[in-house]
Amino acid sequence: MTETSAPVTETPAPRPTARPVVIAATVIVVLLVGAVLGMFLTQRALDSSGPATPGTGSVEVGFAQDMSVHHLQAVTMANWARDHSTDPEVRQLAFDIQSTQLEQVGRMKGWLMLWDQPEQAPGAYMTWMTQPSGHDMAGMPGSSAGAAVMPGMASDTELAKLRSLSGKDLDVYFLQLMLRHHQGGTAMAQYAHDHSPVSAVKTLTQSILNSQGAEMVLIKQMLGARGAQPL
């Protein structure tokens, strides 16, 4: 009986390890994650490098504080004229001024709240208008002889006179005071528009320049129709 030998089983050659492939893939993932993280951090840095929140003494804060006071006097005069004039054209103008400027005051006071600033400046008015711009405070309407705290504003004596008048005299004096008031306000708005990089401030000041510019033309026409001249 012939003895048969068991078949020889060949040991398979060792397979190449996959470790280098895994390591390479891991490196690619890490690089991708790092690139994405780097782009994210760069974008955050760019975002945070924008204009800082306006602070005390800035054009933006000073404008919002002072123009709010300026506007509120216009609202006071407009309310009086609307309630005491019998002229429909004067009453309509007074209503338009009152509604427009109250809305603008609301915006400015909202900014001051967001910027953590007081609604009124703790010191003197107009200290924010200090940069060279061609604006001469001494030559602004209503700023001579210390008659008013800001350009174009009526003095207490002038407000008392307005309240003492009636009929055509009331209408004419209101128009005269409001024209001068707008002239002073637009000078302030122009300065802020020229010196602030904040888009919201530029938008509001341009709106003030547009609306009050149109109203000044109308007021001059109304004064002429009533046989009167600006102050």
Rank of each mutant, 00 (worst) to 15 (best):
V59A: 09
D116W: 08
R107I: 11
V105H: 02
S68E: 08
G123H: 13
E158T: 11
V198A: 01
M150Y: 01
A187S: 11
A145W: 10
Q229L: 04
V61Q: 02
A228M: 11
M222K: 01
T130W: 06
Q131M: 12
R107S: 09
S58V: 02
Y191N: 00
N210A: 06
S58M: 13
V105F: 02
N210P: 01
A200G: 01
A6I: 05
P54E: 02
A147H: 09
Q206V: 04
T4L: 13
L159A: 04
W128T: 03
V149T: 13
G184L: 04
L72S: 13
T9A: 09
G167L: 01
Q221W: 01
A154R: 11
A138S: 08
H195M: 10
T86N: 14
S5L: 13
A13Q: 13
G34E: 09
A94I: 11
L231T: 15
R15G: 14
K202F: 02
L177C: 00
A138I: 00
P230D: 10
T26H: 00
E3T: 15
D136E: 02
D156P: 12
I208N: 02
L32I: 14
P151E: 12
R82N: 14
L231C: 09
Q43F: 10
R163W: 06
G227P: 04
A138Q: 09
Q65V: 01
A13E: 14
M67H: 07
D96K: 09
L177R: 11
T56V: 10
R180A: 03
G185W: 00
S68F: 02
V22S: 07
Q65G: 01
P14D: 06
V61N: 02
I208A: 08
T127W: 05
G123Y: 07
A6E: 15
D194C: 09
T130N: 14
S5Q: 15
L218Q: 15
P16K: 15
G146C: 06
R163L: 01
L170M: 08
G50R: 09
Q92I: 05
L175K: 05
Q92H: 12
Q104N: 12
G213R: 04
A154E: 06
L41Y: 10
T26P: 03
G110W: 08
I219N: 08
R107F: 05
G224R: 12
M108K: 10
F40P: 00
P7M: 08
G185K: 03
E60H: 00
T86G: 12
T186S: 10
L170C: 10
L175Q: 01
F40A: 14
A138Y: 00
I23P: 00
L204N: 00
L223F: 06
E158D: 08
V59K: 02
H181L: 07
G167D: 01
M188W: 03
Q43D: 14
S5A: 14
M216R: 10
G110K: 09
G123D: 12
R15V: 15
V33E: 03
P230Y: 09
A25Y: 04
G224A: 15
T2E: 12
E103V: 08
A138F: 03
M178F: 11
S85F: 08
T127Y: 07
A200F: 04
